[in-house]
Design a protein around this nucleic acid. Structure first.
Lengths: 115, 115
DNA sequence: AGGTTATTTAACTGAAAGGTTTTTTAGAAT
DNA sequence: ATTCTAAAAAACCTTTCAGTTAAATAACCT
């Protein structure tokens, strides 16, 4: 039971259909039918995916006649980004052989390679 | 069945226990027992979480006597970050009243405000 | 009113997730 | 050789998830 917001957001994102829906919404608002069109699954299935996204705060829904247009809400993505930032150094730091070697040189002689 | 890498990664991250494990590993290698210690759940449960993280490529395991030290592997996090980048503009763009108003002006008269 | 279109709700199903306890495996140490 | 410790595997249970089809809502259009 992922009660916490971040877990809810990440598990909403952990589905290719839902990410495809977000990608579509990045292009602009769309109705449920429009969103469902590219997929082979039934409409209720898409409707459920939308509910998951909505619960996670990743989309919001308007009301226009019989359509319920969806739009992207990026706030939770920002939260994910903020969480990820805590690990950025782990992937920006390159630890392949050459880098390790250069770092070691650097450690031994901080002036190595200058000029 | 999330066959794709990104889905596997995101669903591995969508659990607070697993994120806590990663946070611990960001401080350095640790054995399964050490990783399990802060949690109330059984050891096999933690072992399963580690397997999920390993399948997602988020950790790797060594072998040292009867211990199997785990260490963080950040590559999949980088992938998540890359994916997220496609949405960055949506949360960096501020959509408060003034911005919306200025955008509306822009829409009506693209030359408004120039000079 | 009656019908059409868009979407949600309900009821059901099968598979996967996350936990438990018990049993194995593997290496260390006595 | 036996025993201790660290970890994994097996077997099981319960809940959640992703999908289905069929029925209900809701707003529009004659």
């Amino acid at each position: 039971m992922p009660e916490d917001r971040l877990s809810t957001t990440l598990s909403a994102l952990a589905d290719p259909t839902r990410r495809a829906i977000l990608a579509r919404l990045a292009l602009g608002e769309a109705s449920v039918g429009e969103l469902a069109e590219p997929f082979e699954m039934s409409l209720p299935a898409v409707s459920k995916h939308l509910k998951v996204l909505e619960r996670a705060g990743l989309i919001s829904r308007g009301r226009e006649a019989q359509w319920r247009p969806c739009r992207l809400e990026a706030a939770p993505l920002k939260d994910v980004n903020n969480w990820l930032d805590g690990y950025r150094r782990f992937w920006e730091q390159k630890f392949d052989r050459l880098d390790a070697y250069l770092q070691e040189l650097q450690r031994i002689d901080p002036d190595a390679g200058k000029n």
